[in-house]
Amino acid sequence: MFTGLVEEIGVVRRVEAAPMGARLTIAVKEIIAGTRVGDSIAVNGACLTVVELMPAAIVAEVMAETLRVTNLGSLKPGDKVNLERALRLGDRLGGHLVSGHVDGVGEIKSKRRVGIAWEMEVAVPAGLERYIAPKGSLALDGTSLTVIDIKGNKVAVGLIPHTAAHTILGVKGPGDKVNVEVDLLARYLERLLARTPKEGGGEGLTWEFLAANGFI
Rank of each mutant, 00 (worst) to 15 (best):
L67C: 02
V15Y: 04
L89D: 00
T196G: 11
V15H: 12
R36K: 14
V51P: 11
T206Q: 13
S74V: 15
I32E: 08
N179A: 08
K198T: 11
V171C: 11
D79H: 11
V180H: 07
A139T: 06
L53E: 03
W118E: 07
E65H: 10
I26P: 02
N153D: 14
L24R: 05
N44L: 09
D141K: 01
A126I: 14
E65I: 08
D39C: 07
V43H: 13
A164Y: 03
A33M: 03
E30Y: 05
E199A: 08
G38V: 03
V157W: 00
E65T: 06
R85N: 00
G201R: 05
I116Q: 15
G170I: 02
T196W: 08
G94R: 02
A156I: 06
E107R: 13
I132S: 09
L140S: 00
L145C: 01
E199F: 03
G202M: 09
G100E: 09
R85D: 08
L53K: 12
A212L: 06
V147N: 04
A156N: 11
T66E: 03
A212R: 15
R13C: 12
G202Y: 10
K111V: 10
E121A: 05
A126Y: 13
Y188C: 05
K172Q: 07
I58T: 12
H166Y: 06
L205N: 02
R191K: 15
K177D: 09
A57N: 12
I58R: 09
H101G: 01
E119A: 06
G90Q: 00
V155G: 00
E199I: 01
R112E: 13
E52A: 14
A17R: 15
A33T: 12
E199L: 10
A211Y: 05
M54H: 14
I108A: 10
S144A: 02
G21L: 11
E199M: 13
W207P: 05
L184G: 01
W207M: 15
S99H: 10
R92W: 00
G104Y: 04
W118M: 10
L205T: 10
M120A: 01
R36E: 15
K151C: 05
R85M: 00
T25M: 04
T167E: 03
I160N: 01
D183I: 01
V11I: 15
A60Q: 14
V62Q: 06
N44H: 07
L67W: 04
L189R: 11
A117W: 10
V147H: 06
V180N: 01
V114W: 03
V147A: 09
R113G: 04
H166V: 11
D91M: 03
I26N: 13
T143K: 04
G204D: 03
G201D: 12
E61I: 08
I41E: 00
G100S: 07
I9K: 06
